[in-house]
Each structure stands twice: as C-alpha cells, then as structure tokens.
Design a protein around this nucleic acid. Structure first.
Lengths: 198, 198
DNA sequence: GAAAATTGTTCAATTTCTGAACACTTTTTT
DNA sequence: AAAAAAGTGTTCAGAAATTGAACAATTTTC
C-alpha cells in the first residue's frame, strides 16, 4: 500500500469506477469524482498528492482543451505552495496533446486502454516526485520569511492562534469569547495566561 | 431546470449514480460523491444548496449514526453562516430515525426505494427553503460592515477539523500524526474515537 | 518470514476543565 | 451620577482528559 492520496477525475462514471478499483488496491487514499469543478476544493482540503485527470469532458469536445484548462488550474492557479502532481489520461493517441500537456506542467501521460501495472507505476512515480518537491519546499522554509508552508500544525499552536483571533473578534471580551469557543470562562482565562495572550 | 446545486453523498456507487441520473435531469448542478469526508470541503467551496445524504456508511453499522454525525457537521459545524439544506435518505422505514434527524436539523426524509417525482419535489422544496433563508441572512448583512459574518469557530470543531486534516496528511498513521500534533498517541486515539473520525 | 513499526488496550498519576461562588471593577442604562 | 448589568480575577472541589508505561496483537517493511 503506497502512502499517497490520489484524486481521479473522469466524467465517464464507468471509467471512473474502474480506475478507482485499480488504484484502491495500491494507494492508501483514492478519491474518485466525476465533476472537475470540485478539483480546487478537493486538492485544497484533502492534501492530494496526484491528480489523475481525464483530458476530455462533456461530449463533442475532443481536443483536450478541458484537460489543459484544469491542468492549468491545478498547477498554476490553485493557490497552493506545492500543487499535486498531475497525470493526464485520454482515449486518443494524440502525441501533440501529450507534448502540450507535459509542457504545461503535466507530470505524466497515460492512454486508454491502460495497463494496470503501468498505471500504478506511473502514479506512484508521480507521487514520489511530488513528495520530494514538497520536502524541498519544506526544507527551504527555514530561510523564508513569508507564511508557513503547510506542515502539520501542532494542536497547541493552532489553539493559541485561534483563541487570539477569537478574542480579537470579540473585542477582548472574555465572557463572549469563551461562549463562542465553547469553553468555560475560567478555562479561557487560564488558557490566556498559559499562552501569554494577556 | 431548477436553479439549485445538489450534493449527493452515498457510499453505494450504484445508488449514487442512480440518484445522480435522476437529479441531473431536474437541477442545474449535481455533484455525486461517495466519500462523506469530502462534505466539508465541497459545501465550503461549491455553494451547495441541498445535500442528499445517505444515513448509513460502511457496512455493519445500520443505526443511522453516521448520517446524524454528518448532518450535525453540515448544519452546526460547517462554519458557514447559512449551511445547505439536508435531505436524508435511508433504506429502512425507521420512523424514530426520521424523527431524530428532523429534530437535529434535517430538512426532509426520503426512503429507499424512492419515487423519482417525490425525490425531485422534496429536494426542490428544500432548495427553495434554503434560498429563502439565505436571502433573509443577506438582507440582515446589508447593515453590517465587514464582509463575512461567520461567527467564531468552536475550539472543539477547530480541533476536530485539524486532526482530520493532519491524519490525512500523515497517511492515516496515528503515531506520526500524534507526534505532528504534539499530543500523545493514546490521546489522539481517544480523540479520534470521540470525534468519530476512525 | 524475521524484524520493525503500529495499533488497541489497560492503568494510575497528573493536569486540565468545569460550574459555582464571591468580592471587585467596568460599562451601560436611566 | 446613581442604579443596574456585565465582566473580571480568584478560589474550590469534583469530573474529565492527558500522559507515559506496558504488553499482546496486528500490520508493514525489508
């Protein structure tokens, strides 16, 4: 079981399910969705490592424009400091499209009908590649100034930050803030003291 | 075509597809997902009007607890100022469960096997109801200054969400996640149980 | 398939959270 | 400015959560 989170996007539900079944046997988390509009939400919230993306959505359109559109969204407009790897998939042996997609940031390219072993291998490679990139990004945090690159946050830090924010939102009123936070006033009081937020 | 955005959650892919096909004919946007963990991300990002939610996930469990859990997440812990309407669906004619779910904020209740016309009608009603509520909410914003009203988030909710995310980032490894969160493994273990995140 | 890591449990000591209480201070109402 | 209301600082004792240690069972890794 490879430690990677995969998102499959394909509007053909039969294909989607088929891909899902294959990948579920190899990766720890596999999310399969037929609506590409959900891509931004899911990669933002679910920390996806690899997106397996169909090049063609809807019917008539067969030029891969949709795939390229979403590829761009994932790679360049997701707002993430380290976007997931993207493996593109299509039913057509279009070399030109493959070249275009790789140029625009795609990490690999698969053709239907696919070979399961090949599919898993390529996705695993993409996941590994992404993992390395992320580690590099994390390493360079040390020297960075700006905000942090999403390493898991300590629960205490999260709590301290949140309390600070809520206290500010509540105009410094402890009683109100305590109610909003769902803790007793005395607890908030001692937390403020403990966290040095007075 | 009714102007509403519907999210269907059902871990049975066949049922999911079936529901999707029915609703796709009646509503402008229909998102179908089998993994309930995606609910927070999707309703947060996709401006969903109605969630059609299966009461039972996983296998053995048939008491509707999962449905009630996610209902609560949507209605009371989404952090949204105006959460989507929720229509619950189940295979069992359990009146008690229906009453519980409606009490806890469910907007309607549907039983399998469902009648398509009835399904569409109930969802359309829920969408309309939600639309009215939202307009009211918007009206009262009019006099406010800041953009979002989103009330401060409960500490427990914050913690639950964060733990869910970190567990995902850590590939489900409790020991690693606990270290990242800065709590003991046993504590993480009991928190996962308490929060129903296992 | 042996070794290493992780999980599910229990346990008792320790820490934190809780509501209630009460005197005191600040803010709001009249 | 007096009265009323709300909020603060503090204490207390019981309830709840957290902790590290421990150990068998399971899963993962090599």
């Amino acid at each position: 079981m490879i430690q990677a989170r995969i998102l499959i996007i394909d509007d053909n539900v039969a294909v989607l399910q088929s891909l899902r079944l294959v990948l579920k046997g190899a990766f720890c988390t596999v999310v399969a969705v037929s609506d590409p509009q959900l891509i931004p939400a899911i990669i933002k919230e679910e920390n996806i490592d690899v997106v397996l993306l169909d090049m063609n959505f809807g019917k008539g359109k067969m030029d891969g424009q949709d795939g390229l559109f979403w590829l761009d969204r994932i790679k360049h407009r997701s707002g993430l400091d380290c976007p997931p790897a993207v493996v593109l998939i299509t039913a057509f042996g279009d070399i030109g499209l493959a070249v275009d997609s790789l140029k625009q940031g795609g990490d690999d390219f698969i053709q239907k009908p696919w070979d399961n072993a090949d599919l898993i291998r390529k996705i695993a490679e993409a996941a590994e590649k992404r993992r390395e990139k992320r580690q590099q990004a994390n390493r360079s945090i040390g020297q960075q100034v700006g905000k942090d690159i999403s390493q898991p946050v300590d629960l205490t830090d999260l709590e301290r930050e949140h309390i600070r924010k809520v206290m500010s939102e509540c105009g410094g009123n402890m009683s109100v803030a305590a109610k909003a936070l769902g803790i007793s006033r005395t607890t908030l009081y001692s937390k403020l003291k403990r966290y040095g937020l007075q």
